[in-house]
Design a protein around this nucleic acid. Structure first.
Lengths: 116, 116
DNA sequence: CTAACGTACAACCAAATGGTTGTAGATGAA
DNA sequence: TTCATCTACAACCATTTGGTTGTACGTTAG
């Protein structure tokens, strides 16, 4: 179940911004319209709109129309998937470390060196 | 023990790039010089150097001089801290959800169907 | 219907990103 | 010493990012 690298890129990039993480948090605690969200930050409505778009592209939130408002809702599963993605990364890396340990243990004189 | 937002920003941004994640992985499985790393990617030495710098600024790797080479080593603890940071984020968000649930539960004592 | 509200989107801008090439300084090998 | 290697860093460039303002459009309230 290898997570697509591109997906991970978008996911981590989306979360690598304080405002966006805050939006995720806010929209987890009850849905909020984009304009209501915009009131919470020292930036324009359009700017917040863009942040929401980035989160949406990463699959972290989704929008649902309700009358003339657009309600933003955090996808809790997506947040979990984000955590799992990092966990998987860590597992891969850790796996490498483990295999490395094995190699070191049984390593004798095999000194390989590739030169292009 | 709140993780500094700025630190999280740098951490997640550093990891939001396939090449950089690969560098982290490679430098976990044995140290590698920057030039050796550069051989592994379809980009210039300077570009890889910049990627390493980003990882270093995020505290994910460190460099150690060995002769004329600069060995890059992934800080395993930093990787763990990265995972923990996301976990903490998730915990915060989850906490919000839980408190939200509590509110809903308490409100439910009256057992009425009020529509806002 | 009209006015106000919420949204979408385009155009624009400064700054950051991700890449390049070129130059210069250390260091190890011959 | 001389030369090849490894690194650091500056200058430059194209694209993306994160912000702005302005305009247009659908929806709701009065």
């Amino acid at each position: 179940m290898v997570v697509d690298e591109q997906v991970v890129d978008r996911l981590l990039h989306a979360l690598a911004d304080t405002t966006r993480r805050d939006i995720v948090r806010r929209c987890l605690a009850g849905e909020a319209s984009v304009s209501r969200l915009a009131e919470a930050y020292p930036m324009s409505f359009a700017a917040v709109q863009k942040h929401v778009a980035v989160l949406e592209r990463a699959g972290l939130v989704s929008k649902e129309r309700s009358g003339r408002e657009q309600l933003v809702r955090t996808d809790v599963d997506a947040v979990r998937r984000a955590r799992d993605a990092l966990e998987q990364l860590e597992a891969t890396w850790r796996g490498r470390v483990d295999r490395m340990s094995d190699l070191l243990t049984e390593r004798n004189e095999n000194d390989e060196r590739d030169k292009p």
